[in-house]
Design a protein around this nucleic acid. Structure first.
Lengths: 329, 329
DNA sequence: TTGAAAGCGCTACCAT
DNA sequence: ATGGTAGCGCTTTCAA
């Protein structure tokens, strides 16, 4: 069943059927009715590939993240998918992992599938060395970065001022005289760089001497953190606050501390990042910096929409995080 | 840059270029080398749509779930995506929500995009009334159900014996003389039916009288559960075990109980379902039934592979869950 | 408002 | 082993 069949059955030319399918104006109401009748009667669906051949697109956007089994990315992808769908776009999901070569390969793959745009979720996509693969992709289609920032032509960034968030967090801690802060970060994550910047700036401005012994670089694994923090406590190192670059890490620390009979938040305040579902799982519940995933994603898609419409959206959109105070601080 | 350009530059016909692109045998090594040289030199990528037009496929599989921001689905989608990619397939992600009409619409959409197959993740896709939309889709492409079971032609199911898991769980509880079991389930979830079957069967076989007051139907929200369970306790209802159809629900119950100064597991044992990351967030850590998401997903893709290869894979693949015992029981 | 016909870039069949 | 060419099903001019 193709456009020729429909044309024949409706007694018109394929050009007219095409016009009806694409909702063009220049078709008489009578003809339109007739063609639409035949189409729905036959349950006809235009062939996307033939259509894509002519138009160069089949309305698909590539969405990349390191892994969608991560809470943050899952939520982001869910929001992006739903927003894009309202615009009539499908999402091709790519979980790239952390390897640069892989990321690059995936982007090539997406280009070869002729996606209309690419959305990269997470600062994972910012390499310290070179971002040639992104620049290269951006020459073909617009690239949107969610929670990342890169100055590349045809690349649009939506992110949260995480540096500011941590800065203000340090201030709040200092205000309650919590000046021995254990800082836990995940080395795999590039965004932690800006968090760290906010942290050191906060320490400088609020006269906190941060001992190197109070910085932990850990894998993204609650148990590993628990063990590391436990050892730290056992070794006699003291602190009265914990700031972690991820809720999961904060939770690991929290459990280690409770294990050592330290009271949260009386003895040690604990703060996480992302305001994930995990926050409500501990007792006391975990305070966390909400970096506005949903908002970022909505903004990202809105930016895409403007691009499609031929407008000129902002190259960078910066959102303000919100500190969600719960029992742990 | 198209196949004609490459042909011209390589001094061969487009037919030969096509053969090289598709790795056909009947091309001399010399010609192949030459063509491949030109292709990589020019950075040429075949047009997928033209290709799809000829072949009727561009190697894409539709993956549907209710929402990918759910831990279970996120993990499933991640596994499926990675497995499919090794086979050279891309994933079109569809988060359908719970509405039947929507689900049906998404499946139509995927069909119109000419996906090679569809994978439905979660028993969400089993309607009580009719599954015509699935049957209809299955007439066009193979449909794989992950964690669901439906007897429809061209539909293949991979699931876990959750009924058995709950049955054995009841037995284990009974063995420790925990016979007053609070059963918490999420009504939105169809799979809970088989869990419930396992529960009642277990109660029958191990001489447990299960009072209707000890069955809670709740939304998928920890806070709501916490509140409901709290009220239950306050109203004087007693029990010494909790079985929940999801970790999140179990966690809500656990917090409510700890709030009322009940000791876990001494006073009340708590068991969840899915063995998610949430289990390690509570103290004591949550015991849970591992329904083998990853295995199910891998099996699903393996089934797909067999179908592609023209073999005849099993219509139903049943896996055995594993009880993960932790501190809460 | 409608139709005829020329692509779009590829695959696959038939010759050679 | 290689080339010629007829589709594949649609969109989009250009004419009428």
């Amino acid at each position: 069943m193709n456009i020729y069949d429909i044309a024949k059955l409706a007694g018109v030319s394929i050009a007219t059927v095409s016009r009806v399918i694409n909702g063009k104006e220049n078709v008489s109401e009578k003809t339109r009715q007739k063609v639409e009748g035949v189409i729905s009667e036959m349950g006809y669906t235009p062939n996307v590939f033939a259509r894509g051949l002519g138009l160069g697109s089949i309305q698909m956007v590539g969405v990349l993240c390191s892994t969608v089994s991560d809470l943050f990315y899952a939520r982001a992808v869910a929001t992006i998918e739903s927003e894009l769908r309202t615009l009539g776009y499908d999402v091709i999901l790519c979980c790239t992992g952390n390897d640069v070569a892989e990321k690059s390969r995936y982007m090539q793959l997406l280009l070869s599938k002729r996606v209309d745009a690419m959305i990269l979720v997470g600062s994972i996509f910012q390499e310290r060395t070179s971002n040639e693969h992104i620049a290269q992709a951006a020459t073909q289609v617009p690239v949107i970065l969610v929670n990342g920032s890169l100055d590349i032509p045809n690349t649009y960034c939506v992110f949260c001022d995480e540096e500011g968030a941590v800065y203000h967090l340090v201030r709040a801690l200092a205000a309650e005289n919590r000046r021995e802060i254990l800082y836990i970060e995940n080395t795999e994550n590039y965004a932690s760089l800006s968090k760290w910047r906010g942290f050191t700036r906060g320490c400088a401005d609020y006269n906190i001497f941060h001992s190197p012994a109070l910085t932990l670089q850990v894998p993204k694994d609650a148990d590993a953190v628990k063990e590391r923090v436990g050892r730290l406590v056992d070794s006699g190192v003291t602190f009265n606050a914990v700031v972690a670059s991820e809720d999961l890490l904060a939770l690991g620390a929290l459990k280690a501390l409770q294990n050592r009979n330290l009271r949260i938040p009386e003895d040690v305040a604990v703060v996480g990042f992302n305001d994930s579902i995990l926050c409500e799982c501990s007792s006391p519940e975990l305070s966390s910096v909400d970096n506005k995933v949903d908002d970022m994603c909505r903004r990202a898609v809105a930016t895409l929409l403007e691009l499609i419409r031929g407008r000129n959206p902002p190259t960078r959109t910066v959102l303000t995080p919100e500190f969600k105070r719960r029992g742990s601080f």
